[in-house]
Amino acid sequence: MSDRIFLSSPHMGGSERRYVEQAFTDNYIAPVGPHIPAFEQEFEAAIGRGHCVAVASGTAALHLALRLAGVGPGDEVLCSDLTFIASASPILYQGARPIFVDADPATWNMDLEALEAHLAARRRAGRPMPRALMLVHLYGQPCDMDAVGAICAEYGLTLVEDAAESLGALHAGRQTGTFAPTAVFSFNGNKIITCGGGGMFVAQDKDVADKARFLATQARDAAPHYQHSELGYNYRMSNLLAAVGRGQLEVLAARVEAKRALFAGYRERLGAEPWIEFMPEVPTGRANRWLTCAQLGHDAESGYRLREAVRLALEAENIESRPVWKPMHMQPVFADAPFVGSGADETLFARGLCLPSDTKMTEADLDRVCDVVRRTGREQAR
């Protein structure tokens, strides 16, 4: 059987081993060490603004962001519906209640018209506003942050940016994750750069970043003994993971260009097929194309059949693909959560497929994937 083509696997750049060996040489095999502050400072320089705290995961960073936004038991938090569960689960960690907002088919990001209509209706009814807005830059597609900022200002929402998938993506020339008071990035193994795990909490206010760092280290008070005046978490990144992250950060620009080139390659090879429609790019920004995503078929029913036929055909050829995120309001764990919108993201889920977007793919690999997709699509379309 041919070699496995992965959806998006780690791609080392060369310096990671040197940084990790330095950690071994210095014996900083611990959740402390010089690579952690170095990674934080280098990440700050890479994104252009904000104060960074390296943590154990993107989920941990989101939890910290919600806590520092003042979200607590009984509060409501608006959240993108078409996303990974990590965007929503920290809302429950804080005892709050998510309200999921539909996706806009034109961008796949949150439907801002549906969001504003919901908030306007609440205002007219004299209902209190939600505490916060959890906004996701889906698959590296930057949201229109000018419009989002205006909505948050109008209705008094605290914004948290989930930029877990969008490192290297820009809105109006500016890195996502730098528009809100707090934001997060992920370095999971499949992300555009990876530490094998880990995340980054970003705050525009240094005091907020310092508080996040304090909470992430078990909220240990400044005392010679172990003293804790409030509840914290074991959320700090290890020195070894930070060492890997430093090396990965050096090749970020190259990875973004490789992802975008893969997307262009798919569109060149498959874009003329009438049964495939690739995820668009917003006119207000530049996506990092973390994953190349497409809708198959022409409606939810036919699209689902075609999506599954293509996915299974790819797997039979040892090629990894996966459906797009299942909307949160369709997840059993959130069965009772309110949903705002028409259900457009249900169709995106039914038709949507993430194609292999591994930056180690060759032109021959891309041809191999596209041959299977084309053959299967044409057979199903007969």
Rank of each mutant, 00 (worst) to 15 (best):
Q248F: 02
V282H: 10
G196C: 12
P31Q: 08
L112I: 03
F185M: 05
S238F: 03
R127F: 13
A216T: 03
A88D: 04
V369Y: 05
E346C: 10
L312F: 08
D358S: 08
D102C: 10
H11W: 12
D146Y: 12
L112D: 05
L366E: 03
L314A: 08
I5R: 02
G33V: 09
S321G: 01
A147Y: 10
V333I: 15
G72V: 07
P105S: 00
A65D: 08
V333M: 10
E116A: 06
G199W: 02
I36L: 04
G196P: 08
P90L: 06
T376R: 01
A264H: 08
E268D: 06
N109W: 01
A209F: 00
Y155M: 06
H51P: 01
P142G: 02
R322T: 11
S321N: 02
E320A: 08
E230K: 12
V310K: 09
N109G: 13
A381L: 07
G232L: 03
R305C: 07
G352Y: 00
T194H: 03
I91R: 00
G343W: 01
G33M: 06
V369N: 09
N239C: 14
P37M: 00
G245F: 09
A242S: 10
M12T: 14
I5Y: 00
V148T: 02
A222T: 12
P73R: 13
P224K: 04
A169M: 03
V369M: 10
L82C: 06
Q22E: 15
E16G: 11
Q248P: 12
S229D: 08
R18L: 14
G198V: 01
G196N: 07
L215M: 06
R260L: 09
E268R: 07
M110T: 10
L262T: 08
C52N: 13
D104K: 06
L240Q: 14
R131I: 04
H329S: 08
L348N: 01
C143W: 03
L135H: 06
C52V: 15
V32I: 13
A344Q: 12
P280I: 05
A264V: 06
P105H: 03
T176M: 11
K326R: 14
F278E: 00
H11C: 09
V184C: 13
T347P: 01
K360M: 13
E268A: 09
G265W: 01
G156V: 04
F263D: 14
A180L: 02
G247N: 02
T176F: 10
T176N: 10
D221W: 14
Y155V: 05
S229M: 06
S87M: 13
F278R: 04
S15L: 13
L348A: 05
A103Y: 00
T59W: 15
R382D: 09
L159Y: 02
I193C: 05
